[in-house]
Design a protein around this nucleic acid. Sequence first.
DNA 1: TATGAATGAGTCTTCATTCAT
DNA 2: GATGAATGAAGACTCATTCAT
Lengths: 212, 212, 212, 212
Amino acid sequence: MRKKDVPSLVKDPHLIDMRRAQIVKAAVQLFNEKGYHKATTRAVAEASGFSIGTLYEYIGSKEDILYLVCDSVYDEVISRWEELLDEKLTGRERLSQVIEAYFRVVNDLQDEVLVMYQESKSLSEEALRYVLEKELRMKRMFEQELTRAKKEGLVTLTEGEMSLAAHQILVAGHMWTFRRWAIQRDYSIEEYITYQLRQLFTGFGMKEISSS
Amino acid sequence: MRKKDVPSLVKDPHLIDMRRAQIVKAAVQLFNEKGYHKATTRAVAEASGFSIGTLYEYIGSKEDILYLVCDSVYDEVISRWEELLDEKLTGRERLSQVIEAYFRVVNDLQDEVLVMYQESKSLSEEALRYVLEKELRMKRMFEQELTRAKKEGLVTLTEGEMSLAAHQILVAGHMWTFRRWAIQRDYSIEEYITYQLRQLFTGFGMKEISSS
Amino acid sequence: MRKKDVPSLVKDPHLIDMRRAQIVKAAVQLFNEKGYHKATTRAVAEASGFSIGTLYEYIGSKEDILYLVCDSVYDEVISRWEELLDEKLTGRERLSQVIEAYFRVVNDLQDEVLVMYQESKSLSEEALRYVLEKELRMKRMFEQELTRAKKEGLVTLTEGEMSLAAHQILVAGHMWTFRRWAIQRDYSIEEYITYQLRQLFTGFGMKEISSS
Amino acid sequence: MRKKDVPSLVKDPHLIDMRRAQIVKAAVQLFNEKGYHKATTRAVAEASGFSIGTLYEYIGSKEDILYLVCDSVYDEVISRWEELLDEKLTGRERLSQVIEAYFRVVNDLQDEVLVMYQESKSLSEEALRYVLEKELRMKRMFEQELTRAKKEGLVTLTEGEMSLAAHQILVAGHMWTFRRWAIQRDYSIEEYITYQLRQLFTGFGMKEISSS
DNA sequence: TATGAATGAGTCTTCATTCAT
DNA sequence: GATGAATGAAGACTCATTCAT
């Protein structure tokens, strides 16, 4: 899966990075406020601090802005997440920490994650595939951790449920953003983490049933 | 929370209902394919089987279409759900069934639920509030069931976690639709239900820890 | 060579013909004044007597306007030309009349012919091919007349020169328009016809040389 | 008719000439490929081998490029033409040679002549006047030759037809370029010259009629 | 002199909405 | 009630031109 390339008329790579960072930052805010479709390229340019002409020196089309946002959000989430991880941990501590760290990053990058979550569907087939691939990469990371936990006898998930369980964790993170209208009014991120860890690990606390 | 009223130039209420049903059906399909913003009112009219002029006899603006969709999806979900419920059940069977029935309805109304899920953010403040209120009503239904289960000693959730747990169930249902690109390739709805019930009830199968 | 079809959102074919005639008329004038590229679609709409939105109900793109112009100019030229022809004539009279009639039509449709002449190169590959095919059809008509004249012993052109000679006549007609800045100041169409007939038939009046 | 002056920020006249020659060469190619309006100044700069900023050190506006092209094409045509002429010739040989030489130059400078022919109409009033003046100068050269031929009893053109006949020769040359899509497929320049000389001198080979 | 990033007026095109028939 | 032609505000994108370095 090759990175889709976003055309630029400007040659200086450093400048490109800088300007695109400005663009992404402005776009995240605007897309959050008004949504991708209602945010005009002109408004993005303005919010980025330059003219519409300059904006188009760094992108090829409006969709490229959305792509840059999604792409950079993933990179940012993953890199921040990895920073928080402690490779030496094992067992329950390790799994807890992996999940907790992820939740904390999602909380820190709430606006970014929400935009990516709600607007990525407006990407073109090709760009969407690339973005979803990144999502799957994250899923696989959780899957690995779950597999490791299973080896350690920590969890009782079957092989076939691993994938679903990994999705479950990811969605639990996103849920903090896309349900914030309901959840964040009543819970802090700390409470949310505590709850989700317990929920994910032991569910509603019901006793397992042998058959079923 | 008053139902937002959608203006119509036509008097006959029966006709209004009929036409609006056509509109919703066409719109769900179109919004699924292209998204709300890229679907034109012209296309909705055409897919509904009448002219653009006629479309506007039954709605006041494009947003009304989205509102009608969201509104009717909720009504449909709730009514189908209630049909499946067996009020006489109690205990674990009852909770299982409530959740399972919900998942089945979501599966049956996949396209509808997905559209509502992805596009409702494009509603106006007022309409959105109304729609979210319906979402909350569903949440409260699950909350009641959880409370009842708690009374029966079935679950160990604290009072404060009830709300979150109810959201968790709702999101688990939606997840089946908005993650279908990844999940439905690998799992059937039966498998999904089995997994989610176990996940919700007992988590990854880890032992509870006394202090937390 | 299929007629390229120009898309229209309007269904009534009669209305389409009417509006497109308005568009062509306005476009010819505008394109003459400012050229195809400098004439805006807005200006065409305005000169046509309706709004920009309405313009786009009858065409798919700006290029379609140019195509409609070129297409209709050819049709008009050919149909007017044929009206002037007298099939019963033969010999020198016939050839004279065919050419003269053509010149007269070109004179009557000066603006139209000039636009087509100067702007057709801006058509897309496909549309251009179609338009040039019409030009070739006219060329072939002249070629036939020349062949007939040769059979009657009227002209001494070789078989291989027929095509070139037909082009020569066509260009002589166009020349009246694209050189009008120089020629029409000094000559009337009558004088021009008299001159060209003599020029085409007998050249500068030099004696033929046996070997060339 | 003063030469329109093209402003330059650079002082060194030699450098100016050199750069402008580069510009003209690049522009001719680009204008041929895409037409004047679709060729961007950026593309011209690039094809010229320097930056857009540098381009504007040597011209004042895009139109100046077109003007430089037209101007230089005429100069080139005329100077090459004069090189080919043999002043000592007289009579039919002289006229033939003058025309033939002109055709050969046009053939050699096909792209240049075609661009000038098709795009000069996009020049401003003032620049166009200047360019057309050069065209008229060429016309007058032919006119002189025809007058001389008439004095020698070679041609039977009336005084009033001289001008038109001179235009005819010029257009016959241009025709080789702007009809190349049809003519150059079937004829070589040698064949074309042979044909045109005969056509211009003796027409289709019909007998003159006394009255007319 | 040379460069190329920045600018923003201008262009094509779309599409929700209206209203006369 | 139904139709669909007409409208024009608004939006994405281009490109000639400028100017600081």
